[in-house]
């Protein structure tokens, strides 16, 4: 990998993060746009986690013996009941690795 390739990739990432933070960009975000952007968090973060859980080894996996699915359900329950990010993450990770181990061990 050449350094110029690395710097070009970094520039693309940085520009996309910085672009709208620049006040000289001639753009005013009206109330409708702001309302629309209100959904960025739930939409984008879900679009990142959902494929990790349901798209396993190149195919759709909605089976209940998918350890990602089992642990995600537990994470969802913990998230809503505890509202504690660290606790939810640690407990569901532990359960995930346990489930994976058990599923592998029992074949």
């Amino acid at each position: 990998m050449s350094w110029s390739t690395l710097l070009l990739m970094a520039a693309v990432v940085f520009i996309s993060r910085y672009l709208f933070l620049e006040p000289r960009l001639p753009l005013r975000l009206g109330p409708k746009i702001l309302h629309f952007l209100h959904y960025t968090g739930p939409a984008a973060l879900t679009a990142i986690w959902a494929p990790i859980v349901f798209h396993r080894e190149g195919e759709l996996n909605l089976a209940i013996n998918n350890p990602y699915f089992i642990a995600a359900i537990i994470a969802a329950i913990l998230a809503v009941t505890t509202r504690n990010v660290l606790l939810t993450t640690v407990l569901s990770m532990a359960l995930f690795f346990m489930t994976r181990y058990l599923l592998t061990a029992t074949g």
């Binding site: 968090g41 739930p42 973060l45 879900t46 990142i48 986690w49 990790i52 859980v53 990602y68 642990a71 995600a72 994470a75 969802a76 913990l78 998230a79 809503v80 509202r83 504690n84 990010v85 939810t88 993450t89 569901s92 990770m93 995930f96």
Partner: peptide
């Protein structure tokens, strides 16, 4: 799975 767990923990509440 760590990423999935964290984002689920942020989004669902």
């Amino acid at each position: 799975f760590a990423v999935a767990a964290t984002f689920i923990a942020i989004v669902l509440p």
